[in-house]
């Protein structure tokens, strides 16, 4: 009569599975209907990049030091340097988002805090060449909110955290 036992066990297990799905039937869906609602992004979100200008003087921060180009593991940054008035500038700056692995090493290395990641992730393009960001588009990306991780800040972020009032 083993099949009788099997049959009873079968029915019982069906019921236990039904119980779980029944419970979940009345839960609120976790779906975020994307274009209507959007997720709250974390403050350290890594999405696309921006090159910064100094808010006081209005000058570009980037000095064309090639460090980000050298550290990039995916080799997506290409730049050329020019010197005007004894200060380096990036004459051209290309960042190929289609090959970028979003590892944040360029941000970590930048001695001038010139390159940062911004919290704007809707960067899909129809044409692949549009994913290559040139200097102009990187400068335009400044309008988006920055990620809180900025080259010189990482050192602070490794230290003992301060109470929230001190760090703003």
């Amino acid at each position: 009569m083993s099949w009788m036992k099997d049959t009873f066990e079968l029915t019982g297990s069906f019921l236990s599975a039904f119980k779980v799905t029944w419970k979940n039937l009345w839960r609120k869906p976790v779906t975020i209907s994307y274009p209507d609602q959007k997720r709250v992004l974390s403050e350290r979100q890594r999405a696309t990049f921006a090159l910064l200008t100094d808010p006081k003087t209005g000058e570009e921060k980037c000095t064309g030091c090639y460090i980000c180009q050298n550290i990039c593991p995916a080799l997506v940054i290409k730049m050329e340097k020019e010197i005007i008035n004894e200060r380096g500038y990036a004459k051209t700056f290309y960042l190929d988002l289609s090959g970028c692995i979003f590892c944040e090493l360029c941000v970590q290395c930048c001695p001038q805090d010139a390159i940062v990641m911004v919290r704007h992730w809707e960067i899909a393009e129809i044409k692949k060449e549009n994913l290559v960001l040139d200097k102009k588009r990187l400068m335009e990306n400044q309008k988006y909110p920055f990620s809180t991780i900025i080259g010189s800040k990482i050192r602070e972020m490794q230290a003992v955290p301060k109470p929230p009032t001190a760090s703003s």
Binding site: T21, N24, L25, R27, K28, P29, V30, T31, S33
Partner: peptide
């Protein structure tokens, strides 16, 4: 729709 709600989704909308 039923499957969606069962799986914490919304289903067609």
């Amino acid at each position: 729709k039923f499957a969606g709600r069962m799986q914490s989704r919304i289903g067609p909308q």
